[in-house]
Design a protein around this nucleic acid. Structure first.
Length: 470
RNA sequence: GGUGCCGUACCCAAGUGGUAAGGGACAGGUCUGCAAAACCUCCAUGCAUCGGUUCGAAUCCGAUCGGCACCUCCA
């Protein structure tokens, strides 16, 4: 089963054929490290991780590159906003470098706890200013730039296929759009490659350049760094769906104008996580972080499981009820697998039965075609419940599937055995004694008392279990 | 103003021409002093609405209603 993937450029599912036999270069737009990632951001990295794992599963030699944006990402209003990093610095009193270090660290803490594989190369924009300047010079030599009002602009009129990815109809864009006309631009869709002028003072990050001291435009870093690490043409470029019409459109323009050849073969975009009010946005103020989910008693893997239940090209509706369902589902799944492991005594067997091979083939078919993870997850459930496959063989299949799902399906018990106060243990002990002499009225009264103290006592087949109420 | 996506049970969600995956919740049963757990069963003649095409439609076409997103920063 060959891999197939939906390509935003063609708006269709295409067979995946790498540029170089057996090798794949993949670039994914990374975080702007001016704040914590919200769980909507993280959904995109989960989808990219699934793609990473599928390509590796199929035997490709993958080079996965992701940028860290720590300069040049403006906050609003086209090219007139303030740099997000600088604004955060001004608000917090920390240096931009400290801000970047802090949120970069928290980003990788989040992705790590979600079992997202760290890309082979992670690169910071501020470490590649030289490459960006070189790219602007190439564009300049080929006549794609102009200087106006102190800034260097890319002229989209010099790049005839501008907007092909987003299927923009350029002649219809300007009317009625919410774009304030920038007097410096020849075309309203032109964008800045290098700033030497801004509306604000005190920009702390700035570099010397042939056009004066300044800083790069945001789109530039992805072109410069992807080409540095993956070459002037590579296979896959990922990102959130919101990047199609501006960021990726501009990346294509500046990259292909500079090299004169096709830059990226497959464009793959992930849809948004939304809630009942619409998309999650940091600019709304409050936003959901993975830390908040943990505080509320969810495992990061509950969230991963939740994301696995929806297709990456569909909006996914978040609610606490939906997350509860995912948590319950994952908990039950782990229970099933635990009993399978006990039945098999932890020993795996080769996948040799007809039923086992059929399950594997079904699973591989689903993951290979445009990341049909929800169906693959359903196959896992039927496997877990199957009566036709031995427990030992199930373990092998589960291990194989988990190389994609990455839900720690075969991990030992999550050791969150928390300290139960002695007082509670005493009451539970009294209850057990009362039960022994069949004084159920007293036993129930004690159970109520324990409940009122915030704990639940259950009689399981392995004895009494006490858990703290959530 | 322009453009795209979507509307499937109480909730999340898969399914793009062959008769509605999966999970959670709910309900019933077995078991247990009860509760819990476990296991079993049940759970949309129906896919926003109305028309059309077809032997056959959640899937294709048209209209209507509703939601989301993009054309500004955005995963």
């Amino acid at each position: 089963m060959e891999v197939a993937i939906y390509n935003t450029m063609s708006r269709s599912i295409e067979p995946f054929v790498p540029l170089k036999n057996g090798k794949v270069g993949m670039y994914c737009c990374g975080p702007t490290v001016y704040n914590y990632a919200h769980i909507g951001n993280l959904r995109t990295y989960i989808f990219e991780d699934l793609l990473h794992r599928i390509l590796t599963y199929r035997g490709y030699n993958l080079t996965h590159v992701m940028n860290i944006t720590d300069v040049g990402h403006l906050s609003d209003d086209g090219d007139e906003g303030e740099d997000k990093m600088e604004r955060r610095s001004r608000e917090s009193g920390m240096s931009v470098y400290d801000i970047a270090a802090m949120y970069t660290k928290s980003f990788f803490a989040d992705t790590g706890s979600l079992n997202i594989i760290t890309p082979d190369v992670t690169c910071r924009a501020t470490d590649h200013i030289g490459e960006m300047i070189a790219l602007i010079q190439r564009l300049e030599e080929r006549g794609h730039t102009y200087i106006s009002g102190g800034n260097v602009y890319f002229s989209i009129d010099t790049f005839p296929s501008y907007g092909r990815l987003a299927r923009l109809k350029l002649d219809q864009l300007s009317s009625g759009a919410r774009i304030e006309v920038d007097e410096n631009k020849r075309n309203p869709k032109d964008f800045v490659l290098w700033f030497t002028k801004g509306k604000f003072e005190n920009q702390s990050m700035k570099w010397d350049s042939p056009w004066g001291v300044g800083y790069p435009g945001w789109h530039l870093e992805c072109s410069a760094m992807s080409m540095k690490y993956l070459g002037e043409s590579f296979d896959i470029h990922c990102g959130g769906i919101d990047h199609v019409s501006v960021h990726h459109t501009n990346e294509i323009a500046q990259s292909e104008a500079a090299t004169g050849k096709e830059w990226v073969k497959y464009w793959v975009h992930g849809e948004f996580l939304i809630d009942e009010t619409g998309k999650m946005s940091k600019s709304k103020g409050d936003f959901l972080t993975l830390s908040l989910l943990k505080e509320k008693g969810y495992s990061p893997l509950d969230y991963r499981y939740f994301c696995l239940g929806g297709h990456y090209r569909s909006q996914l509706i978040f609610s606490w009820q939906a997350l509860d369902a995912a948590k319950g589902g994952r908990t039950n799944l782990m229970k099933h697998i635990r009993s399978i492991r006990e039945e098999a005594d932890g020993i795996k067997a080769d996948i040799s039965s007809e039923a086992g091979k059929a399950v594997l083939a079904e699973f591989e078919g689903h993951i290979a075609v445009d990341l049909h993870i929800p169906q693959a997850l359903a196959v896992l459930w039927t496997l877990v419940k199957s009566k036709d496959i031995s427990a030992a063989e199930k373990l092998s299949l589960i291990e194989t599937m988990d190389s994609i799902f990455a839900l720690d399906l075969l991990a030992e018990e999550e050791t969150e055995s928390e300290e139960i106060p002695g007082e509670i243990l005493e009451l539970a002990q009294k209850r057990s004694e009362a039960k022994k002499v069949r004084d159920f009225a007293l036993a129930d009264a004690l159970r109520d008392e324990i409940r009122d103290l915030g704990f639940t006592v259950k009689d399981t087949k392995d004895g009494v279990e006490i858990i703290r109420n959530m």
